[in-house]
């Protein structure tokens, strides 16, 4: 099957600092690609390049076979990219329902009544139904994280970019989150940056490890985690044991 996302030779430099150095990988529908790497490895920078927040110096981004490298961010969103940010990015003066409604109306491009119906469904799915009329700015962190994921899902994406959405959650919440992600997985292609590695290994089919803006290993999760280059980067960090948090 043709990949939903294919990136090739993606590069970005700020002066002498290289945040992405010929990064390339692909993800197919129903597949989850995990991205690991130490802080500052360039994981979020690659997301910024993929979703159009930053334009690359070189390389190509293909979404469903279409070259979107020079397309603006909002068009990529309409073409089926959605991203849940590491730091939730709600519309603070809109209610939780309206936040999700923005995504169903513009991202998914649904008609008014369908947009409302899908928004309601999304709030139930993400456990925010009881807080549907609460302003997003006054939601606690966990709910804002749920809303972030909900907004991304509500745009009915082909490609879902998840940026450390499990960070800061309790063990129970991570279990719930993993169950939710697994239920969505068959319908989308997913790229998931995560430090909570046990959450990632529960869902990811493949892993990409990054350091200094470069892909240093790619393949089966166990294989990548055990590879010498990854072990070297994480020296002192036990990756394959269940995390204590």
């Amino acid at each position: 099957m043709a990949p939903v996302l294919l990136i090739e030779g993606l590069s970005k430099r700020y002066g002498s600092i290289t945040v992405a150095d010929a990064v390339g990988f692909q993800v197919a529908r129903g597949e989850c690609l995990g991205v690991i790497g130490p802080n500052g490895a360039g994981k979020t920078s690659v997301f910024n390049l993929i979703d159009g927040t930053v334009s690359p110096d070189g390389g190509r981004i293909l979404l469903d076979g279409m070259d979107v490298t020079r397309r603006p961010k909002h068009l990529r969103a309409r073409l089926g990219m959605a991203r849940a940010y590491q730091v939730p990015q709600p519309f603070p003066d809109l209610s939780a329902f309206e936040n999700v409604l923005v995504a169903t109306t513009f991202g998914a491009g649904l008609s008014a009544s369908d947009a409302k119906a899908v928004a309601r469904e999304t709030l139930r799915l993400t456990g925010l139904w009881d807080k549907r009329e609460v302003m997003a700015g006054s939601l606690p962190l966990l709910d804002r994280k749920r809303l972030e994921l909900g907004r991304a899902l509500a745009s009915q994406p082909k490609l879902l970019l998840l940026d450390e959405i499990a960070g800061g959650l309790t063990q129970m919440e991570v279990v719930e989150l993993v169950a939710l992600i697994r239920s969505i997985k068959p319908t989308v292609a997913m790229v998931w940056i995560e430090h909570v590695t046990h959450a990632l290994s529960a869902v990811a089919d493949r892993l990409v490890a990054m350091n200094f803006g470069r892909v240093i290993a790619e393949g089966e999760p166990q294989e990548v985690m055990n590879s010498p280059s990854v072990q070297e980067v994480y020296l002192g960090t036990v990756l394959d044991a269940p995390a204590a948090d």
């Binding site: 969103a77 959605a82 990015q89 513009f106 991202g107 745009s155």
Partner: peptide, 10 residues
């Protein structure tokens, strides 16, 4: 409310 999130929502 949030320019970047608005663009990310299409």
């Amino acid at each position: 409310d949030n320019e970047s999130a608005a663009a990310a929502s299409g």
